[in-house]
Write a protein that binds this DNA or RNA. Structure first.
Lengths: 246, 246
DNA sequence: TTAATTAGTGCTACTGTGCAACTAACTTAG
DNA sequence: CTAAGTTAGTTGCACAGTAGCACTAATTAA
């Protein structure tokens, strides 16, 4: 049982019914040239809702452990992946009486970008990478997680059009071709090489690393982010000219 | 299997401590050529936190009345303004142990755009329009509402650069000059008339209304939104060329 | 040696913008 | 009634940025 603080706040707090509050994290990475998302299997216990189904990693906020929503998301992400410094961004919140059979609940959805992990699974092995096909995954998801995932994918695709986000899908050092490939994988369309390079340099996104990669073909120049902490906004999108007319 | 009572869900729900859940609405309009936001005065009761301070309209989610977060926001907006069909968008959520002295709390911030109201106040007269100066208002706000307001203003300004949002600050019928003025007020900078018109038409944002406005000068063509339900995304921002070099 | 692959560069045409001048239709002052 | 002022809306031109595509160079594989 929880020990009540001896000093009760002098506030008059009406005892209204409180919703459940949770955080779900949509963790993206690129594996084998395709966008993947990490899902966990819910316990088979029939006293739990959606037993045995695949779901986004997440769960209830812990008012003891979690100082705020973002650190709650970070905690859950670290539990599943071991990654400590992902790109993490809030997608939105969904709350209502219908989404969890147990009670009125509100969930806070974050999406994260991490480089392709060497060991696919970490710790609890109920977690698996699923390819994102269109806006979805092949399996049926628990609760309204299919909708949450869709929103996260949409946000990601949209934001990739005009930001440096895909850099966080790569290790610290990468070639411009690597980076371009990340854009193409997420956006599911080719990008013009020349315009891509011009814009990346014009934005001051990267700085050179002076060693040279060994590889199957010509050694390519390695780069790293010039300002790893800030994401860069491009003045325009990567849209080809045609799509402006459609 | 033993049949449970239909009232009690058959789920095993751990009795963890639940946060407070609230919704706050940042309601924008344009009055006298300046962006304004609606604030309400908190009760003077010293048993309430932040007594007598100005705050964003909002409050706790009511699990009986509110089907979901958005309808909760809409309910609070209608209470204060009487407006039934504003533009309403979620800005984000902020939750943590420190933001409300009473308990761990999570709030869900929406921003709304409404046309300039004829009667400034509706119903409860503790609500007042304040001009937005920079990212803030002149008064000190309750809780972390100054930060929430800042986030909403930033979202608004950012999104106005490449969407049709300012149309929702006008009545259903408006002239192109009216619309351009809304962009200029929100963005706090002049826009090129010629480019503005070209882009608005190219995007198919508006359709003509065949009556003509009576006014102090030449009657201007009236327009209305071609698709009032959908916001339009422009292929580029309204940024002048200089800012691309800065 | 030759073909294939990939990194990186150069060139051109085109689109949309900034800028500014211009016309047209109305109001207001005298 | 006239002249000046105001605003809606158009037109023309110079210029910046990039899409599209061809090209060079360096390496590997056969």
């Amino acid at each position: 049982m929880k020990q009540k603080s001896p000093v009760v706040a002098p506030f008059n707090l009406q005892a209204i019914e409180r919703p459940l509050v949770s955080v779900d994290v949509v963790i993206f990475t690129v594996l084998e040239g395709a966008l993947h998302v990490l899902l966990v299997k819910r316990p088979d216990d029939p006293r739990e809702p959606c037993p045995g189904m695949w779901a986004l990693p997440g769960g209830f906020v812990d008012v003891e452990k979690d100082a705020d929503l973002e650190s709650c998301a970070l905690r859950k992400l670290q539990q599943k992946t071991g990654v400590k410094t992902p790109y993490l961004e809030q997608v939105g919140s969904w709350g209502g009486s219908k989404r969890d059979p147990r009670a009125w609940s509100a969930t806070h959805v974050y999406f994260a970008l991490i480089p392709a992990p060497e060991s696919l699974l970490q710790g609890s092995n109920d977690a698996t990478w699923f390819p994102v096909e269109g806006q979805r995954v092949r399996v049926k998801l628990a609760f309204d997680h299919a909708m949450l995932l869709e929103a996260a994918v949409q946000r990601l695709r949209n934001k990739v059009e005009y930001t440096s986000l895909p850099a966080y899908l790569l290790p610290q050092e990468f070639t411009l071709s690597d980076l371009q490939r990340m854009y193409e994988v997420v956006l599911e369309r080719p990008i013009e090489k020349s315009a891509f390079r011009t814009r990346v340099f014009a934005a001051g996104l990267v700085e050179e690393v002076d060693k040279v990669r060994a590889g199957p073909n010509r050694p390519a120049q390695l780069y790293r982010l010039a300002h790893p902490r800030e994401i860069v906004y491009f003045p325009r999108t990567f849209s080809p000219r045609k799509s402006a007319e459609d």
